[in-house]
Design a protein around this nucleic acid. Structure first.
Length: 580
RNA sequence: CGGGGCGUGGCGCAGCUUGGUAGCGCGCUUGCUUUGGGAGCAAGAAGCCGCAGGUUCAAAUCCUGUCGCCCCGACCA
């Protein structure tokens, strides 16, 4: 179907919308691809809808290629399915809840593990039925605390979610690998720049988990990469290499007067000046108190985390490390309830007797000596040796990660970047199968508990990611596979220019290209050029002033090249450009 | 939920300090001119100034309350 600007439901905007901050949001709104309806909720206009469908098509083709079968669940779901796994309560405020006319509880599906598990349980019962992989491309609902950046993080979004069901761990590994390859093909075809990074399997349980991150300044995730060995991981999942244990003797623990040293920096300066030490912040041991609450209960455990003084506790990493527990700030009133903890002067020496759990950064190995709190106001202790003067209850990955930190695999310095999560694959294991009692009857007549994998692609988010990664100061620059059309033919308006442009458009359409033609009368050339750059189709053909001399202009939106070509060659040249 | 900003024709904004006629740019309509880089002239249409209450002869403007939105931090495709 030929797209004609004269009738296309489209109005481009000359100015950025006031509520947009990131490039993808500004451009998708300005170019008339999407319009905001409510926070985190957007409508798709004709051109945007075409792009979204193109991405959907690629995802569907690649899922079908690995033998996954498409199904479709309702977005509107009754409460009971999510009651069984406890997620009706666990999901908290992020769940959109509603009631029907009888007062029964419903929800708008944020994700569909329960539904898929239940569906398979309802249909399959023999080991001969497995393995099986099902997927859907569907609208999800999450009442995000703070939707942001337009399409990038909405409360309603399109997601492809798939689930593999296998009889054993080897089968799961195979399903996982198959998905991984499918995702590589999907994102390659879409023209998205991405990295595959290790991720936390976290709350969902299970073992292996990787994320597909699109590197991007506006990304919400932080990841590290090693340019020597190729290791890459979400900052949450980075493993800190532990230095070898120290065995050399240390002087005995010594308590020092350190008045007015509330910060690490002031402490370092003070002990170097007044106590003859030569230490840096990295030689001090900072002890951070938090509470860890178990979801669905009011009980909170007090936990102290020891990290080198030059590092902060990264709340995101801490959260991932204590998951499914939820870390909370230790407030002033909590200190009142724990008189043994001297705020600002906490040292690990007394924690055993206080019965408080103490976890340390992996850098705090046995035999390492530290300057830390002496559990008395105004006093610190030096030569506090791990394993001699205190015992930790274990290690924890909670200290912040920085560019230049050592790669856990090869020791080279790590780089650090931001990215947008566009895909996530992981080996779920048996959590949902356990909850649902999903078994297959084995050849020996005994039940086999099914093991699952779960895999997601942010389909609508991919539109925004492409806009984010592929644009210039003039507008969008779509990869051909997802562009709303292959070629944008612009008739600039004098005499028969529009007629010729339309004829070319019809001819190219009949030869299989997807064509947008600017056939608007009475619109100045400048406006048409600006619009074509803003809309971002990969190939542009200008039928303008050169027509009288029998030439038209062929432009490449990606490279910016412009070339005058004879009208007679226009069809072949455009076809060649679009099929390259 | 904590912090910051903002609600005025479809879009982007001014006006508010110091109450009195609602204004500018873009877009839209009509006519004439123009047509290779967001054209010109002329004439138009379109606004419960977020909502509610209060002060006042008079409120976009002052007061109180309330709702909403955007941005920054803790969640996630």
């Amino acid at each position: 179907m030929l797209l004609r600007m004269s009738t296309l439901f489209l109005r481009t905007l000359r100015e950025d919308p006031a509520d947009a901050e990131v490039p993808s949001h500004k451009l998708l709104v300005r170019a008339g691809y999407v319009r905001r309806v409510a926070p985190g909720i957007y409508s798709w206009l004709p051109l945007g809808k075409i792009v979204l469908e193109n991405i959907t098509r690629v995802v569907r083709e690649e899922m079908n290629r690995i033998g996954a079968q498409e199904v479709l669940f309702p977005a509107l779901l009754p409460r009971d399915y999510y009651e069984a796994t406890g997620r009706w309560t666990e999901y908290g405020d992020t769940l959109f809840r509603l009631k029907d006319r009888k007062g029964a509880d419903y929800l708008l599906g944020p994700t569909h593990e329960e539904m898929f598990t239940d569906m398979v349980k309802g249909e399959y019962s023999s080991y001969k039925d497995y393995p099986v992989t099902l997927y859907q491309i569907q609208t999800k609902y999450r009442d995000e605390a703070r939707p942001r950046a337009g399409i990038l993080r909405g409360r309603e979004f399109v997601m492809k979610d798939s689930y593999s069901f296998d009889l054993d761990d080897d089968g799961l590994k195979h399903s996982y690998e198959t998905h991984r390859e499918a995702y590589i093909r999907i994102f390659d075809r879409l023209g998205i720049d991405y990295r595959i990074v290790f991720a936390m399997s976290g709350a969902m349980g299970g073992s292996a988990s990787e994320e597909f991150l699109a590197p991007c300044a506006t990304g919400e995730d932080t990841f590290v990469a090693c340019h020597n060995c190729g290791y890459a991981a979400n900052a949450e999942a980075v493993v800190t290499p532990a230095p070898p244990a120290v065995t050399t003797g240390h002087p005995a623990l010594e308590v020092l007067d350190t008045p007015d040293t509330p910060t690490i920096e002031s402490l370092v300066n003070y002990v170097n000046e007044h106590h003859g030490l030569r230490i840096t912040a990295a030689d001090t041991l900072k002890n951070v108190v938090v509470k860890v609450r178990t979801p669905g209960s009011d009980k909170a455990e007090t936990l102290i985390i020891g990290v080198p003084g030059d590092r902060e506790v990264d709340f995101k990493r801490l959260e991932a490390a204590v998951s499914p527990g939820v870390p909370e700030i230790f407030e002033a009133e909590d200190f009142v309830r724990h008189p043994g903890l001297v705020r600002g002067y906490i040292g690990p020496q007394v924690l055993k007797s206080l019965g408080i759990r103490y976890l340390v950064d992996p850098r705090v190995v046995d035999g390492s000596a530290w300057v830390t709190g002496a559990n008395e106001p105004g006093k610190h202790a030096a030569h506090v040796v791990a394993g001699r003067d205190f015992e930790a209850d274990g290690t924890i990955e909670a200290a912040d990660v920085r560019a230049g930190d050592s790669c856990p695999r090869c020791g080279h310095p790590l780089s650090i970047d931001r990215g947008i999560e566009i895909g996530h694959i992981f080996q779920l294991g048996r959590k949902y199968a356990d909850a649902a009692g999903l078994d297959a009857l084995g050849p020996d007549g005994k039940p086999i508990r099914i093991t699952m994998g779960s895999y997601g692609v942010g389909v609508s988010r991919a539109v925004a990611v492409l806009a984010e990664q592929r644009h210039d100061e003039l507008g969008l620059v779509w990869p051909r596979e997802v562009a709303p059309a292959d070629v944008h033919i612009v008739g600039t308006g004098k005499e028969n220019q529009i007629d010729v442009a339309t004829q070319l458009a019809e001819e190219l359409e009949s030869r299989g290209l997807r064509v947008l033609v600017d056939d608007r009368a009475g619109v100045s050339p400048g406006v048409k050029f600006k619009d074509s750059e803003l809309l971002g189709l990969p190939t542009v053909l200008i039928v303008g002033r050169g027509l009288a001399q029998g030439v038209v202009e062929l432009r490449d939106r990606v490279t910016g090249t412009k070339e005058e070509i004879p009208l007679a060659e226009a069809l072949d040249r455009v076809l060649a450009a679009c099929q390259a």
